[in-house]
Design a binder for these strands. Structure first.
Lengths: 321, 321
DNA sequence: CAAAGTCATCGTTTATTTCAATCAAAACAT
DNA sequence: ATGTTTTGATTGAAATAAACGATGACTTTG
């Protein structure tokens, strides 16, 4: 039987690949640089192959095989962790650390309500948060640097298991006095002639908003070079008359338009929405936990979205939720 | 960061689960029984959980959590091995040990030709063979006890990556002087009134033959309690006038009907066939090797199946290959 | 050219793993 | 019942592997 690589050595390998620096990698692994160096050499000797290209000056350069081994090492470490995680999950359901990734168009609006709710429902859960774009979060999920994602579909979740938790409708946000502000509901066709403001590239909300308008993601370069970096910025831009936009009901419910005088109108016809949902690695040892958390999340989303009427009810005739 | 279980301990765990006996498991792991016992206790202590139900007399009984951990341990070990395997595969393409599983309705007819061909094409390959039913082979593939399967689709390959290598036509095998023996081609409908002999349950060929006849797998219990355990037996039964059957062209090509006087006829209309193919675990480190081997296999199958005419050409008018 | 930075190497210490021998309990046969 | 066998757990010595700190060789940078 073949000799297996030690988890330690694989951890050295993966950490080195992530930091591309022996010293820093050693620090992260909480060992000395010599230990990490020796561990990597031992790994190369045991596998009888070259992982690093040592002819390449002082930068850490991986051979093609080295990169493949890094990927496989990552997978192996994830599988190893899932053994101990499964044991821990059985010992203490809904407890322990949980690394949750959230996209920027959900986080600021849902977390203020969600976090206290989760704390009271699952007091032993220790939530670590990271806010980033869908693509980055999915990468981190697959690299086992996050356990659970809260994001908006449709999007590319790269093979993750998912659970939908809420439907989040889109509203047209108009500056006060806009020519469309008098309408009860705005047909999609009317948007074509408007200057539609969007988030910068990388935000899934951008693609979803474009899809709602019947456009492809690549269709619209930001003609004037102004794409917003957050929904708050976007709201300010609309309030200043630079154009109109689509806002998720969730953000409105959280009061993002409060005090701006913005007019909110539903799109005419079939509702346009995004689906909020959880995503995790297939076979994740704590998927039962994640689903229970998802059920709780369904409640919270409902509460938050119903609360929306306090903010938008007066000016928005029909509200897709 | 969580403490990871050692690969050693996981190997003890998986081996114990497979042998359900400390002593034998220790022997397989090439350690003493005390080492294996201590390793398992250490694992339970590290994970702070019960893996074995020690109240259950002298038999090895796993707790539900224990069974889950075994499964995850298997996965983790496979992932670990894939690291060293990837290195080995890069160092020596098409070399080293390869555990190949073959179904009984392919093995005896293809391997005599295939093995020498592979030996000359890939002299450094060390082939270990196992013949078993599809379901058992797939289980062993997933448990990382086999690397590559040679089987016949359609069948349930349970998530494996596959590569078709040949189309293997079905022929109607009739006893000499059978009332249908005069026909050039036999319509499927004619089979309904015949006593159709089949392999015993578990052979995919049985299900595939039934499907060709438009029947479901469960439709036909072996009315008379006689199902054959091998194609050779089946041929003898047909030769003795107990009924008729369908034979794969591959078996005919290998001469399974030689000297029996059996009459072979194609089915009328669209050809009925099974597809021979390879299957391996997704992300298997040597999948490039497997595909190269598959390409070679395509050649061998073609040769063998063309050779069929030497055996059946004279009596079989049109031959689906 | 000097200085800093980076990775590899060496000898020592520490921690872990394994073995052989032995023990206690359960199952089986008489 | 009662000895016998089988099974898994325990123990202390020996072997093995991993970690550290200091140092060396080599680049890159100012």
């Amino acid at each position: 039987m073949t000799l297996l690589p030690s988890p330690q050595q694989l951890r050295y390998l993966v950490t080195l690949a992530e930091s591309r620096h022996f010293g820093r990698a050693a620090q992260i692994c909480a060992v000395t640089q010599s230990t990490l160096s020796a561990g990597l050499l031992a790994l190369e000797r045991q596998l009888d192959c070259h992982i690093l290209d040592r002819a390449a000056g002082r930068h850490v350069v991986f051979t093609p095989l080295g990169l493949e081994l890094v990927e496989r090492a990552r997978t192996a470490l994830t599988a190893l962790e899932s053994v101990s995680e499964a044991a821990r999950a059985a010992r203490e359901p809904m407890g322990g650390p949980l690394r949750l990734g959230v996209i920027p168009t959900i986080g600021p609006f849902l977390l203020p309500t969600l976090m206290p709710a989760l704390r009271s429902a699952f007091p032993r859960l220790r939530l670590y948060l990271r806010e980033d774009t869908t693509a980055n979060l999915v990468d981190r999920l697959n690299a086992n640097r996050l356990d659970l994602l809260l994001l908006a579909t449709p999007c590319d979740c790269g093979g993750a298991d998912t659970m939908p938790v809420a439907r989040d409708g889109f509203l047209v946000a108009l500056p006060p006095g806009h020519r469309l502000a008098g309408e009860d509901a705005i047909p999609v066709a009317a948007l074509a002639t408007e200057r539609l403001l969007l988030l910068e590239d990388g935000h899934c909300l951008r693609d979803q908003a474009l899809a709602v308008c019947g456009l492809l993601a690549g269709d619209r370069g930001d003609q004037d070079g102004f794409a917003a970096t957050s929904l708050h910025t976007l709201v300010q831009m609309v309030a200043n008359g630079l154009g109109i936009t689509l806002l998720p009901a969730l953000a409105v419910a959280a009061g993002i338009t409060d005090g701006t005088g913005l007019v909110l109108r539903p799109l005419a016809g079939a509702g346009a929405w995004r689906t909020l949902g959880l995503a995790w690695r297939p076979n994740a040892p704590r998927s039962a936990d994640y689903q229970a958390l998802g059920s709780r999340l369904v409640e919270t989303c409902r509460e938050v979205l119903e609360n929306q009427r306090a903010h938008a009810g007066a000016i928005c005739v029909s509200l897709p939720v």
